[in-house]
Design a protein around this nucleic acid. Structure first.
Length: 476
RNA sequence: UGAGGUGUAGCGCAGUUUGGUAGCGCGCUUGGUUAGGGACCAAGAGGUCGCGUGUUCAAGUCACGUCACCUCAACCA
């Protein structure tokens, strides 16, 4: 018991020191380790398995929507980056540049992709000739590099894994619609797969992607009330099409520029999941992405028949499509309980001589930390039902917390009070950059997304009529 | 880039004030006993005290320099 307390105390207090709690959890649960180059992280097998599950689930949605996977080069000629003026301005400070290769200085420096709009735009310019080639809808799973000044595992690292989707359409309407559709796809993914509620909406001019006409984002609320941008979609208009000559001959025989859009989510989603669902014991993983959904802990495992019964249960769960595992290590049961709880496994099954005798299994739910008993008969169906219930409960819990912590403000003081209390603050905004900047200076909060409808009367800063109702929050 | 802090075993730390044989807890290895919430006993392995220069009979400890990391600020689809 004393030992347990000592161990648990190694994880920072989630209420008192949330950033430290986060760091403790990602390191101690062996999700990641720090890389030798500053700002990089090594994703360990347990962390990578979460990413694989995210990839698989999201890929299925993309395929169903008609998006195809492709791959483009890591290195981009510097000249590509400079073709779109705003784009280069936005990314220049954080690109890594390759100046030497093959033992000699390169004629033209190459940038390590911070995002692939330019190189994909370049290729699309070659591939698109006719209206029959459109729409062209591609996605790639890859790594990108952005040389950030301060980093934190998953939330902001110099190199990270993501998917970036890029599409060209013949008309502005279609491209804009796709931008909003993809935002909705992300929102549903957050809900159904990550059990995570998000706020979605259009970004302000100040916050939009470098080179975009419009950016939409989804923002998740972390335990401390700060916001984490967890996915974005961008409508580019013809900005990139013109920079990269993405032209096609339309039905009417006229040569026209296409309309492009892009969208992406990254390993940051893992950080969002950790910070949304985690508790004082460590991770709480949504069942759809948990590498192990049900761990079986044998009790008195050296006793005749115990381990065999565990294996049998494991096999039947796997048969039913549950990611199950038996922990037959030499550690004591208590040690295993704590270890797997810290690692966020949704369901733990304890199986000992007593259970086997009674034809039951002891079942522990990670989301509510409660133990119960279920009959061993029909265990796979029961566990599957439990996993679904856990997922639904995790979403409800997080959604309720978010709802409770969205407040409105009429004045800057109220806004400051709101974000200080760990809330998202819904407030009116006149639409000018000066007022947006004042909020940042006064309350260290930024406009996360704009609500679909303007429901506020006046701008929270200057008092002029409100043009957009904005969700302000402190952000990671 | 500004301010502050920390570098001692895999992890967490004590030791630095006042220079004198390198320590503790956890983890790890081996053997045994255990097992329903981080078990116990015994025996082990593991360190150029971030790096460099200097002072000294003697430096983890003092001085100067340097590097790395952390926190806050700034920066940041």
């Amino acid at each position: 018991m004393a030992k347990n307390e000592q161990f648990v105390s190694q994880i920072a207090d989630i209420e008192a020191d949330f950033p430290q709690w986060y760091t403790d959890v990602v390191i101690k649960t062996k999700l990641v380790d720090y890389g030798p180059v500053k700002g990089t992280m090594v994703i360990r097998p347990y962390g990578y398995a979460i990413w694989e599950n995210i990839q698989r689930e999201m890929d299925a949605l993309f395929k169903a929507a008609g998006v195809e996977n492709a791959y483009f080069p890591l290195l981009i000629p510097m000249s590509f980056m400079t073709k779109e003026a705003e784009h280069v301005e936005g990314f220049a400070p954080e690109v890594a540049v390759v100046t030497h290769a093959g033992g000699a200085k390169l004629e033209e420096p190459l940038v390590v992709r911070p995002t692939s709009e330019t190189i994909i735009g370049h290729m699309m310019g070659k591939w698109v000739e006719s209206w029959r080639d459109l729409p062209l809808r591609l996605n790639q799973w890859c790594n990108v590099m952005r040389w950030e000044k301060t980093t934190r595992p998953f939330l902001r690292t110099s190199e990270f894994l993501w998917q970036e989707g890029h599409s060209v359409y013949a008309s502005a309407e279609e491209a804009e619609r796709e931008t909003e559709n993809m935002l909705r796809l992300y929102e549903n993914f957050a809900k159904d797969v990550l059990c995570m509620p998000v706020l979605t909406g259009k970004k302000t001019e100040k916050e939009k992607f470098a080179g975009a006409v419009a950016t939409y984002g989804m923002e998740a609320m972390m335990h401390d009330g700060k916001s984490l941008q967890s996915g974005t979609t961008h409508y580019m208009g013809q900005n990139f099409a013109k920079a990269f000559n993405v032209q096609f001959t339309d039905r009417d025989g006229a040569l026209k520029y296409g309309y492009t859009m892009s969208y992406g989510v990254s390993t940051r989603l893992i950080g969002a999941v950790i910070m949304t669902h985690g508790d004082q014991r460590g991770l709480v993983l949504p069942p759809p992405v948990a590498p192990v959904q049900a761990v079986i802990v044998p009790i008195a495992q050296k006793k005749e028949g115990v381990l065999a019964a565990c294996r049998e249960l494991e096999a039947s769960l796997k048969e039913a499509g549950v990611r199950a595992a038996v922990d037959d290590s030499d550690n004591s049961p208590g040690w295993k309980f704590n270890e797997w709880e810290m690692k966020g496994v949704p369901v733990r099954i304890e199986l000992g001589p007593r259970d086997i005798e009674n034809g039951v299994m002891t079942v522990f739910r990670r989301d509510v930390c409660e133990k119960g008993e279920l009959p061993l008969e029909d265990a796979p169906e029961a566990v599957k039902g439990l996993l679904a219930e856990i997922g639904a409960n995790m979403y409800e819990k997080a959604a309720k917390r978010m709802q409770e912590r969205v407040v409105t403000a009429e004045t800057l003081e109220e806004l400051l009070g709101g974000v200080n209390g760990g809330n998202f603050v819904k407030a009116g905004w006149c639409g000018c950059r000066e007022c947006e900047d004042k909020v940042k200076t006064f309350a260290q909060a930024t406009a996360r997304v704009m609500a679909d409808e303007n429901t506020a009367q006046n701008c929270v800063v200057c008092g002029k009529p409100s043009v957009h109702t904005v969700f302000f929050a402190r952000a990671y």
